[in-house]
């Protein structure tokens, strides 16, 4: 077992564990923290697969994003201090069955696709190539996403405007 496989298993167990805690934790704030742990674990998996850029972006965007989610959770439920926010997961059994079903389906697809070749060595600077291809080959989707985000931003400002 080499270092990469070991790293994968450590990350994977941590990732699945924190993901389970996100849905099973009674305390809403704790589940948000577990979500942060799961997202950082995902970044770890990206880094273990030589996708450093993706890993760093994952941390950069989601660390702030997760905390924004907490703030919204607290602000929306309007319980700043005092009573603990609690999460009640109803129909755990049904959810578990659906989750296992989806997992089986995904595993089946992966097994059939026959991806068993060894991972190719990364020699080129993947970040550089990602940047170049984003601005050449994938320029149109990239710009479309930009326009979409801008529309989202404008909509948010519209809804947040003070009443006249």
């Amino acid at each position: 077992m080499n270092g990469e496989v070991l790293a994968f298993w450590v990350l994977a167990v941590g990732l699945v564990g924190s993901a389970l805690n996100v849905v099973l934790s009674k305390n809403l704030f704790h589940s948000v923290l577990w979500l942060a742990a799961a997202l950082v674990g995902t970044a770890g998996i990206f880094i273990a697969l030589d996708a450093e850029f993706l890993g760093a972006v994952q941390v950069l965007l989601y660390a702030g994003g997760v905390i924004t989610v907490v703030v919204f959770a607290i602000v929306v439920t309007e319980r700043l201090v005092g009573e603990r926010l609690s999460q009640t997961s109803r129909r755990i059994l049904g959810g578990a069955v659906v989750a296992v079903g989806v997992l089986a389906m995904v595993l089946n697809v992966i097994r059939r696709s026959g991806i068993d070749m060894p991972r190719p060595e990364m020699t080129a600077d993947i970040t550089k190539w990602m940047g170049i291809s984003l601005l050449t080959q994938f320029l149109l989707p990239f710009e479309l996403l930009g326009v979409l985000l801008l529309a989202g931003l404008l909509a948010a400002t519209y809804f947040a405007r003070p009443e006249e």
Binding site: V40, A56, V57
Partner: peptide
Amino acid sequence: LFFLAVSSMEIV
């Protein structure tokens, strides 16, 4: 990017 990403974890 590493610097920015890691230092943004501080808020957690």
